[in-house]
């Protein structure tokens, strides 16, 4: 075992987060999730389990949705990250954000950023041809309030808009 935290060293991590270059100096054990929340103040990305079992920490990394809790920040040096804060703003909501509000696709709101990031990336990848496929491809995002049907309805509404 290495002796102490200092022996693990500090790495320079350059990320483009929501179109903005961010440089961090982090020990390797900082996850991308904790880097976003604790070091960049981007708390829109949620910690629901920290073990890859809920999807609340979903972000879009180089066009693909990933779990930021199972990713070390250093692994993503040089990557492009989109978090919920970069999907849309209150003045300029992404269509899926608007659809979530319209379909009341959330209650407590805690899984919502992950659901939206996940849905946006799925739609952008052109996946999910049927409701059943969308349900399956969105199953990596748990919702304990039980907004499941509203979430899928919101995604399908946006999918149909863009057709």
């Amino acid at each position: 075992m290495i002796k102490g935290i200092s022996e693990a060293g500090v790495h320079e991590v350059n990320l483009v987060v929501n179109d903005e270059h961010r440089q961090l100096h982090l020990p390797p054990w900082v996850t991308l999730l904790d880097a976003l929340r604790n070091h960049l103040g981007l708390t829109g990305t949620k910690k629901g389990c920290d073990h890859g079992q809920c999807g609340a920490c979903t972000v879009i990394c180089d066009d693909e949705r990933i779990l930021s809790c199972l990713t070390l920040a250093t692994m993503k040096d040089g990557s492009n990250i989109t978090t919920i804060e970069g999907i849309g703003s209150e003045d300029e909501l992404h269509p899926l954000q608007s659809a979530f509000i319209e379909h009341d696709a959330f209650q407590c709101g805690y899984c919502t950023p992950g659901q939206i990031c996940s849905g946006v990336a799925m739609l952008a990848a052109g996946r999910g041809d049927t409701r059943e496929e969308i349900q399956d491809l969105m199953s990596g995002n748990l919702c304990r309030c039980g907004a499941n049907t509203n979430i899928i309805d919101a995604i399908i509404a946006v999918k149909n808009q863009s057709k």
Binding site: R37, G41, L42, T43, G44, T45, K46, K47, T83, I84, E85, I87, G88, S89, E90, L93, Q97, F100, I101, E102, D104, F106, G109, Y110, T112, P113, I116
Partner: peptide
Amino acid sequence: YRRIEGALKVTGRAKYAAEYQ
């Protein structure tokens, strides 16, 4: 009515207990 706090929740700006800077 739509939820008043809806926009805050869908943009990640709604702050929960561990998120106050």
